[in-house]
Design a protein around this nucleic acid. Structure first.
Length: 419
DNA sequence: TCTGGGGTCCTAGGACCC
DNA sequence: TCTGGGGTCCTAGGACCC
């Protein structure tokens, strides 16, 4: 059996842990640049604040209901997530971290339905006691069904739901619109509705295998099997190595200057390369992309991207900078108001696979040492204390984040004070 | 005025090989 | 008019997820 545990309204709940005055008030968290609403407490959902709505469109709603608004604080959420994931080890030796706020864990196979329910309740209570975050627990024989059980847990008011017996599964599937299933998105839902007349999850369960495969490829065929209780999606216990690492941000204000673009790109590359080295990976190709603001219909529009294969894989920021600078110069055009720029490190492979180079091997070794020192200094004194070249003081491209909470759990200077 | 960011998997089709 | 068979690798685009 598998349990899916996820944190309710994760970002909003994290903010509440350290700001209890907001426990009974609507809370929302905004995307980068304070652009969209991306997390909402139940109270915020109830007053009609929708996921992904631009912040400027809901100003009046926010005011009338005295909604607490936060810029996103990924340092805080990342740390709170790590605490939840670690605590799950207490309940199972097999934990798959599926996303920042969700994990699948394996459970003993031979418990009764009510024992599963009790276990789910215990998990929920303990995590709240230890970390202060509310979770929902769904328990079922496959991942796809566990996802569904979790959905039910949120709706039944208990925060726990188990689907051991097939009779319960049937009942739930009957009530579930097919589009709510994990892996069935807008397009697949449309196909199922139109081409097969399928509306409920239960109807999909009994769809002919070959038919499902033809319509929704192997992904759809797997969902059908999982709904029937046949495991197709195993727990991924060892985190799979990343294949790409991407870093990009929208600018606080539009950029019209090449130097500003380059500076922003440098900043994102520094970030992406650091992430890559932390996972002991090297990139074998690099992609740089940029775009204007597609919502400004009156502005001239332009977007482009370009990829370069590297002669040998690297994770040296210095080496990668040379490449990204060249790529940016190839696609940057004067006369546009740019909204974002970004870098995608591709074809990642383990650093050890990084064989000796025919040319430039000694420089490569020096580079490795340089990166090591750089990372140690960054780890100890923080990002940005040491950097390549010159960074201007005024970062025109910096994001807006006007309502960010303190990094309570990771920065001593920002620790919670009790007065 | 103001609209996020970071990923994965799958398939079809092109290029190329013998 | 006629035009093999069997493969691999790569890429772009679609769909989906959080």
């Amino acid at each position: 059996m598998i349990a899916l545990i996820d944190v309710n309204n994760f970002y909003a709940s994290c903010e509440r842990v350290f700001a209890p005055q907001f426990r009974n008030r609507p809370v929302v968290v905004l995307s980068n640049n304070d652009g969209c609403v991306i997390a909402r407490s139940n109270e915020a959902k109830a007053i009609g604040l929708n996921m992904g709505t631009p912040f400027f469109k809901v100003q009046s709603l926010i005011k009338t209901h005295k909604v607490a608004v936060f810029s996103s604080n990924y340092t805080l959420y990342g740390d709170m997530s790590a605490r939840v994931m670690e605590s799950l080890n207490y309940f199972s030796p097999e934990v798959e971290i599926y996303s920042i706020d969700e994990a699948f864990i394996s459970l003993d196979n031979n418990l009764t339905a009510s024992e599963y329910f009790q276990l789910g309740k215990k998990i929920k209570e303990k995590i709240y006691q230890w970390i202060g975050l509310p979770v929902s627990v769904g328990i079922a024989p496959t991942k796809t069904l566990a996802k569904l059980a979790n959905r039910m847990a949120k709706r039944n008011g208990l925060g726990v739901f188990e689907m051991r017996e097939e009779s319960i599964q049937e009942e739930v599937l009957e009530q579930t619109p097919v589009g709510k299933l994990w892996g069935i998105g807008r397009q697949s839902k449309k196909k199922l509705n139109k081409l097969c007349g399928i509306e409920t999850a239960r109807e999909l369960k009994y769809l002919d295998r070959r038919h499902a495969r033809k319509l929704l490829t192997v992904t759809g065929a797997r969902i059908v099997e999982e709904l029937r209780g046949n495991k197709c999606l195993p727990l991924e216990l060892v985190p799979v190595l990343k294949k790409n690492i991407c870093c990009s941000r929208s600018f606080g204000t539009p950029i019209t200057d090449y130097r500003d673009m380059k500076e922003a790109l440098d900043f994102y590359l520094t970030n992406a390369a650091l992430k890559m080295r932390k996972q002991n990976l090297s990139a074998s190709a690099v992609n740089v992309f940029l775009a204007t603001n597609r919502f400004r219909k009156n502005d001239l529009q332009y977007s482009n991207s370009v990829t370069s294969k590297l002669s040998s894989p690297t994770n040296s920021t210095r080496e990668l900078r040379r490449v990204t600078h060249h790529l940016l110069s190839k696609i940057y055009l004067e006369g546009y108001k740019y909204k974002n720029v970004g870098v995608l490190l591709m074809g990642l492979e383990p650093e050890e696979a990084n064989t000796k180079r025919l040319f430039g091997e000694s420089e490569h070794i020096k580079d490795k040492r340089l990166m090591k020192s750089l990372d140690i200094i960054t780890e100890r004194f923080g990002k940005g204390v040491i950097d390549f070249g010159v960074q201007s003081k005024e970062k025109k491209w910096e994001m807006k984040a006007e309502r960010k909470s303190p990094r309570y759990t990771t920065n001593l200077a920002e620790i919670l004070e009790i007065k």
